[in-house]
Amino acid sequence: MLKLAFIAFLRSEGESGGLLNVVPGLIFWTVITFILLLLILKKIAWKPILNSLHEREKFIIDSLEKASNAQKEAEKLLEENNSNLAKAEEEAQKIIAQGREYSEKLKQQILHESKVESMKMIQQAKLEIERKNQESFVKLKEQVAELAIGAAEKILKENLDKEKQKELVDKYLKELN
């Protein structure tokens, strides 16, 4: 009974049929309106709007990708730079160390050489002195011998009197002094 009442309510005659009456005229107009709206909107709205949306999304994705690529590139460059810098630093350290080592070696060598040289020079000087001594000694000996011979000569020349002889010896002795 309730169901009947409900159906009666729905079918109650208004101005153009009940609530559940399907009217052909309205169907006709709905189809026409909807299809036209669909075609018009498809042409003036959906195509351009969806295209722009798609374009924008693509642009954003591209930009993000580009940015991320650029960042990666920059990171790579930074890393490379850092490694280069480290390498250069190492190189410099090596060069400095080498230089130091070399200079140390050089110093040692120079010191050693100079020592040897000086020793040699001292040795030479000593030899020279020895030689000069020897030389002067020989010269002295010769002079003494000459003197002695001279003296002997003069003595031989003037051995007439004793007096004179004595005088002569004294004189020569004086001369000697």
Binding site: L19, L20, L26, T30, V31, F34
Partner: peptide, 9 residues
């Protein structure tokens, strides 16, 4: 709210 319209859609 018209059944003809909703049926058509």
């Amino acid at each position: 709210s018209n059944i003809s319209v909703t049926v058509t859609l």
